[in-house]
Simulated assay, not measured.
Amino acid sequence: MRLLLVEDDELLASGLVLALYRAHYTVEHVRDGDAALEALAHNQFALMVLDLGLPKRDGMAVLHAMRARGDLTPVLILSARDATRDRIAGLDLGADDYLIKPFELDELLARLRVLMRRRSGQSVNQLQLGELQLDLDGLSATWQGKPVEMARMEFMLLHKMAESPQRVFSRAQLEESLYGWGEGVESNTIDVHVHHIRKKLSPSAIKTVRGVGYRIGLPEA
């Protein structure tokens, strides 16, 4: 799950990046409003966490601009502005949620899970595909009714593909979804993850589409 964090407070941002990474998000961090719009124009994100008091372009202006150009990325505003008029303005401009600083990390993560459920049309934070079940809250996998130990990137890769069972993903698309801008990725990294997933689930769990990439091979529930 790739998330864009727009926050100019470096101390807060560094703590959030670490916490979100541990919660299995791939986080891209930018520090001003112009950089946020540039990132949105050239990348796809599952969610955005947006501060309001930003350099160069205020968070409200960012929200207005992205919605005006048809960008429907779910947005959670994270701001110290606690006046009712600010919350109403943010929601009216198209924010999906509004959380006031200071905040509890567990509440932020819970609200992000709600936005992910809403985005995928699910009422619970679980994904079922054939004999595979992914618990997106507990970050755990079950195969044929038995728990399966998975590394962080294996879980994220499987989740990404299981969300769109009919879609074929190129290696580049999977790398972009799983790894941040500054992370070096070996050319065979995705292939290695796929190999491990097949060993843990089934050789047919992920299908290779020759010359294109990969798609999930499990039947839909």
Rank of each mutant, 00 (worst) to 15 (best):
R2T: 10
R2M: 04
L4A: 03
V6I: 13
E10V: 13
L12V: 15
G15K: 12
V17Y: 04
A19G: 07
A19M: 06
Y21I: 01
Y21K: 09
Y21R: 10
A23Y: 00
A23H: 08
Y25K: 00
T26L: 04
V27G: 03
H29L: 13
H29Q: 07
V30K: 05
D32N: 11
D34V: 09
A36C: 03
A36T: 03
A41H: 03
A41Y: 01
A46N: 07
A46W: 00
V49D: 03
V49P: 03
L50R: 06
D51T: 01
D51R: 03
D58F: 00
M60W: 12
H64N: 11
R67M: 02
A68H: 02
T73F: 01
T73N: 01
P74S: 11
V75K: 01
L76E: 06
L78Q: 11
L78I: 10
D82V: 05
A83V: 02
R85F: 00
D86S: 10
D86L: 02
A89D: 11
L91G: 01
D92W: 00
D96I: 08
Y98E: 09
L99N: 14
I100H: 08
K101W: 06
F103R: 07
E104S: 14
E107L: 13
L108W: 02
L109K: 05
A110S: 11
A110Y: 05
R111G: 08
L112C: 03
L112M: 09
L112W: 04
R113G: 10
L115Q: 13
L115S: 04
M116G: 02
R117M: 11
R118Y: 00
Q122D: 04
S123N: 10
Q126I: 15
L127P: 15
L127N: 09
Q128M: 13
L129V: 12
E131Q: 15
L132I: 14
L132Q: 12
Q133K: 08
Q133E: 14
L134E: 10
L136K: 10
D137R: 04
S140P: 07
A141T: 12
A141H: 05
G145V: 11
V148N: 10
V148H: 03
E149W: 01
E149H: 08
M153Y: 13
E154R: 05
F155W: 13
K160N: 06
S164R: 07
S164Q: 14
S164G: 00
P165E: 11
Q166D: 15
V168I: 15
A172P: 00
Q173I: 09
Q173N: 09
E176A: 15
L178T: 10
Y179W: 06
G180T: 12
W181H: 08
V192T: 14
H193C: 04
I197H: 05
S202R: 11
S202Q: 13
S204W: 02
A205V: 10
I206E: 09
I206R: 08
K207N: 13
K207I: 15
R210Q: 11
R210A: 14
Y214I: 10
P219Y: 01
E220C: 13
E220S: 14
A221M: 05
